[in-house]
């Protein structure tokens, strides 16, 4: 290079698809991390274990978690059982780890300062991180559902689906409803993921952020169990998580599903705007 090279323009050109590359980089990193892969492996083991347990000892109707008794008749129910089992603890755990780590992990290891001086503006970084966490959340739910479906199909076969209302629908409709269930769970967990991201902007200690995020779920579940607080139950973070059951009724109350989804997204919007404000004003000292 010679001095003449400094006639490079003062504003460097931006290449097309820059945000897509940033997002892909985020997802790529989360999928190359051994810890995250282990989390997905644990999640995939749950439907597998339930499937094998049911295969070895046929449960009666009404035993254990919802839908357990129906698995032997139709492997598709393993998807619903697995999601029912995973949604109170395992899925929030995974979402808590990934979202709690998102900003705090980078701050703690110092990589945040290098990302910001690349530069990735803070707003861009938050959006890319949010999409990355959302992608991983969706992936976690999909892993449970797909492993459940495959395990159920292999061990028990698939067939027509008896809904909670007692009516029977075709396998195709049943699969569509399973898709609706999974999508709803993803949206529900996204509210939590956004909370985790906000908490993640508050600290440089990723473990603390993860623990606090998971604590958020526990506090919400606890408040939900106190009957004296029934007035606020409807707006609690975790209250409508099991609302996916709506997809398994004969007459799906679309308005209710949309209302609950709107609540999850409202949580996400508030948490993300808090995260944005915090990140904007954050001093990066690590």
């Amino acid at each position: 290079m010679s001095f003449a090279d400094l006639t490079l323009p003062v504003v460097r050109p931006r290449y097309r698809g820059a945000f897509w590359r940033l997002y892909k980089g985020e997802v790529g990193i989360s999928l190359r991390r051994r810890r995250n892969l282990a989390l997905l492996a644990v999640l995939s083991a749950i439907p597998l274990m339930i499937g094998i347990a049911v295969y070895l000892s046929t449960p009666r109707a009404g035993d254990g978690p919802a839908f357990l008794g129906q698995i032997t008749g139709n492997g598709l129910f393993l998807v619903f059982t697995a999601l029912t089992v995973c949604i109170p603890v395992f899925l929030p755990l995974v979402v808590g780890v990934v979202s709690g780590d998102s900003i705090a992990g980078e701050a703690g290891s110092g990589t945040l300062r290098y990302l910001l001086t690349v530069p990735v503006t803070r707003t861009r970084l938050l959006v890319a991180k949010t999409l990355g966490v959302a992608t991983f959340t969706a992936l976690a739910v999909a892993v449970v559902a797909v492993v459940g479906l495959v395990t159920g199909a292999v061990l028990f076969g698939l067939g027509n689906v008896t809904l909670l209302s007692g009516d029977t629908v075709s396998l195709g409709t049943g699969l569509l409803r399973a898709l609706g269930v999974s999508a709803y769970v993803m949206v529900a967990l996204f509210g939590l993921a956004a909370g985790g991201m906000f908490i993640s902007t508050l600290t440089e200690n990723a473990i603390a952020a993860m623990a606090t995020t998971i604590g958020l779920v526990m506090v919400s579940a606890l408040l939900d169990a106190v009957p004296q607080l029934s007035a606020i139950h409807g707006v609690l973070l975790t209250h409508n998580w099991l609302g996916f059951g709506e997809f398994l009724r004969s007459n799906v109350d679309t308005a209710a599903v949309l209302r609950w989804s709107a609540l999850h997204l409202a949580y996400a919007a508030v948490f993300l705007s808090l995260a944005w404000a915090r990140l904007q004003s954050k001093d990066v000292t690590s």
């Binding site: 409202a266 919007a269 508030v270 705007s273 808090l274 944005w276 404000a277 915090r278 904007q280 004003s281």
Partner: peptide, 17 residues
């Protein structure tokens, strides 16, 4: 000042919701 301006975003979001 900048800090205060940033925090108005969540306040506005919550108010809008």
């Amino acid at each position: 000042l900048r800090r205060r301006a940033a925090w108005s975003a969540p306040v506005l979001t919550a108010a809008a919701i």
